[in-house]
Design a protein around this nucleic acid. Structure first.
Lengths: 149, 149
DNA sequence: GGAATATAATTGACATGTCAATCATTTCCG
DNA sequence: CGGAAATGATTGACATGTCAATTATATTCC
């Protein structure tokens, strides 16, 4: 039978989850401020930038960034309206859509990437000792292992 | 001048942030499944349960759980509609509102709490060694320090 | 061939989050 | 006192997220 967490374990849990949340929020705010992109926009643009021919089937894009398809569909609608991506019919499967990076999307991503990496360096890498960074990797692996159990 | 993160640092960063995100999502899903409550609902109900007289001024509630007031206001509207809390006018400051826990809210929280703590134990505490739990506390402190710089 | 099924993607309804604007009351101070 | 500023809270507009239903095409298999 499973025990409940102790007071101290609960304190660490709350500290941990709230801090990672605040970290994510601060990074998103900086990205928005520096580049007018959300972290979702960034993930989509990164995947397309790295894709063969700067284009991907919608479902492959969803798999690459780990999103549900309906979420992606809604998000692509918004990015399309802003001119960051475009949708084309897939030639060999008429059900499918191909998502391609526009010039505008590519240049927005280009402007975003260095400031974003700097922010990661500033808020994560430089905040930790090399041991702590290794510990973060360990933690992620252990937690991920439990989640995928 | 700030260097960019190395490939390895970036790999750990992505692992770390994605895993904590997945952890949060899984915990929210279990809470929803076990208790029909969101983590937001839970935070509000916890704060009210622990408050003197099971009631709090709206702004104090916001401070306790660390939310913006407009976010809280919207959320309380939804919780009010579901009968989990009630709003009353504050007697000594007519601008203010007092939020109070209903019987229904209290019992919903009562049903939620043990399963939720068990989920934290299962997904966090039991996934880690004691050393790793301590390391998680360290990490949170270091990252928090940088965020509050 | 053609009905049943699977797959790709979008859509609609709604929950949640942020930001800026608004409204009412209280407090400050000349 | 009484107008200006501060405070408490809500609201509206919109971005984002989930889930279930829908649409359209492709595949399977008798």
């Amino acid at each position: 039978m499973t025990q409940l967490p102790t007071r101290e374990e609960l304190r660490i849990w709350r500290d941990f989850i709230e801090t990672t949340d605040a970290l994510r929020a601060e990074l998103a705010a900086r990205l928005q401020h520096d580049s007018a992109l959300s972290t979702g926009d960034y993930a989509v643009l990164l995947a397309l930038t790295e894709a063969e021919g700067r284009r991907l089937r919608s479902s492959e894009l969803a798999a690459v960034i780990g999103w549900e398809r309906s979420r992606l569909s809604h998000h692509l609608g918004r990015m399309d309206k802003r001119g960051l991506i475009r949708r084309e019919n897939c030639t060999n499967d008429n059900r499918g859509a191909e998502i391609l990076l526009t010039e505008e999307g590519a240049s927005a991503f280009g402007r975003a990437t260095v400031p974003h990496l700097r922010a990661i360096r500033d808020l994560f890498v430089d905040a930790l000792t090399p041991d702590q960074i290794a510990a973060a990797g360990d933690l992620a692996e252990a937690l991920r292992g439990r989640l995928n159990r």
